[in-house]
Nucleic acid binder design. Structure first.
Length: 213
DNA sequence: TGCCAGGCCGGGT
DNA sequence: ACCCGGCATGGC
């Protein structure tokens, strides 16, 4: 866990996914697909203003009206469809109770989420970790960028499940660890692994060929 | 002013 | 299995 320890020593506890409810986590997870978080915040504010920040409300809402509320998040017609699909699934199969829907065995719930339109592997893992309290590792563009930059994965070996397995096989399955680790990878990527590398002061500067996570 | 951001889907090879 | 075009807003 050398990388984790270095990042943790440098940045400390992160408190990453800001939300007032588990439902808001899921909504944010869908809205943030390939989208800057600042644009998601505007959309969430619009949903809150319309009192539509729950899946029961979204299930009852007209899809076109929903799309208009979340316009600022980009790809808003698709995301409106995805939110409606999630709401319908939740109400039909779990009486609209998110916590109950996420309370099963990790792999089982993960499979159910992946079967939904608009829920891919990263969104599923974010939901499972941050709303469901399941120990699953969230792999995003930031994590891949950091790993590539430090030669911990091959340039082409960025298939989601492979990278996820890299972490899951090497680390204890602990929610707090996975939460914190993901947040720290985002932080170091934002500071040092943008399009142009700012390696000055990067906590990982000396980890170039160390295979440990 | 074009490029990018906390992806995913559907169709093609 | 993997690759690609489309989706779309707001910030830099």
């Amino acid at each position: 866990m050398e990388i984790f320890e270095s990042l943790h020593a440098a940045y400390g506890p992160q408190q990453w996914w800001p939300a007032d409810s588990n439902e808001e986590v899921v909504i944010g997870a869908i809205l943030t697909q390939n989208t800057a978080w600042t644009n998601v915040e505007k959309a969430i504010a619009e949903l809150k203003r319309a009192d539509c920040l729950t899946f029961r409300a979204i299930d009852a809402l007209d899809e076109i009206a929903l799309a208009e509320l979340i316009r600022s998040a980009g790809t808003f017609r698709q995301k409106a469809t995805y939110l409606k699909a999630f709401a319908r699934w939740l109400v039909e199969n779990h009486d609209g109770e998110l916590d109950a829907a996420l309370s099963g065995e990790l792999d089982v719930v993960r499979g159910e989420l992946l079967a939904l339109k608009g829920i891919g592997p990263e969104t599923a893992d974010a939901i499972l970790l941050y709303a469901g309290g399941h120990p699953t590792f969230v792999v995003d563009a930031y994590a891949k960028r950091v790993l590539r930059r430090h030669y911990l994965i091959e340039p082409k070996q960025t298939r989601y499940e492979k990278v996820r397995a890299l972490f899951m096989d090497a680390l204890p399955h602990d929610v707090r660890l996975f939460d914190e680790y993901h947040a720290l990878l985002v932080e170091v990527a934002k500071r040092h692994c943008k399009s142009t590398a700012n390696c000055d002061g990067c906590p990982l500067a000396h980890f170039e060929h160390d295979g440990h996570l």
